Simulated assay, not measured.
Amino acid sequence: MTTRPDSFDPDVALRLDNQLCFALYSTSLAMTKVYKPLLDGLGLTYPQYLVMLLLWEQDDVTVSALGERLYLDSGTLTPLLKRMQTSGLLTRTRSTQDERRVMISLTEAGRQLKAKAAQVPGCVVSATRCPVSELMSLTHQVQALRRQLAA
């Protein structure tokens, strides 16, 4: 049985602390504060860190593939990638098979940064003071919610 939103008591439904969107938003802000000093030490912003995570998983991918995985459009992603190229972390080259596609590849410096970044997840887990199993369960629940909202 699905509960319709209009069946809620408006006084209860409109309380800030009852809003899932606010819980997700404020948690995201708190999580970003945890990541900031860790990523500052790597010379990365949070969006740049996400790009690096993807490239460490699979190097030599298209801009469009990165955008799909990160939920970013090319207008946001292109300047970000240009800054990362200027920093020497990656290269952007036109595909030899289709010049409309831009390929993103790690440089040696980008590959070496992975070793320094290896401490980030443990620091974040420690900051949450939650068991890893609980964090993984929460991650899966939020991913499922994202899929349902996108459908």
Rank of each mutant, 00 (worst) to 15 (best):
T86P: 00
A117T: 05
L54F: 10
L113H: 13
T91K: 13
L89C: 00
A109T: 08
T107S: 08
G110P: 10
P47A: 05
S74V: 01
Q85R: 06
K114C: 14
V63Y: 00
L90T: 04
A118C: 12
R111Q: 14
L66E: 01
G75C: 02
A117S: 05
T96F: 11
Q119C: 15
S74E: 14
V102L: 01
A117P: 01
S64K: 13
S87A: 11
G75P: 00
M103S: 01
A117N: 04
L106M: 04
T107V: 07
S105E: 08
L55F: 12
I104Y: 01
L50Q: 12
Q119G: 13
P79D: 00
S64P: 06
L81W: 01
L70I: 11
W56G: 03
L55W: 14
L70T: 03
T93V: 06
L50E: 02
Q85C: 02
V102K: 11
S105L: 02
P47V: 05
A65V: 10
Q97R: 10
D98L: 02
L80E: 09
P47F: 06
Y71L: 11
R100K: 04
V102S: 02
Q119E: 15
A109N: 09
L106E: 09
E99R: 11
M52C: 03
L53T: 06
T78P: 00
L72W: 11
L54T: 08
L70S: 04
L113G: 12
T107A: 05
Q97E: 13
T86D: 11
A65W: 13
P121E: 12
G75A: 05
R100Y: 05
Q48D: 07
M52K: 03
T78K: 02
E99V: 02
V51K: 03
S95F: 02
R101D: 12
L54E: 07
L66G: 05
L77I: 05
R94D: 10
S74P: 00
M84P: 02
L54Y: 10
Q58P: 13
T78F: 05
D60R: 15
Y46C: 01
V61T: 09
L50W: 08
T62C: 07
V102A: 00
K114R: 14
L90H: 03
E68N: 12
W56P: 07
V63N: 04
M103R: 14
L54M: 09
K82I: 06
L77D: 07
V61Q: 12
R92Y: 03
D59Q: 03
L90R: 01
Q85H: 06
Q112E: 15
A65T: 13
L80W: 11
V120S: 09
S64C: 13
V61A: 01
P121D: 14
V102E: 08
S64F: 12
A115Q: 14
M84H: 02
T91S: 07
P121M: 15
L106C: 04
M103V: 15
E57W: 08
M52E: 01
R111Y: 07
I104H: 06
E57V: 06
T96S: 04
A109Y: 03
L50M: 09
L66I: 10
Q85E: 09
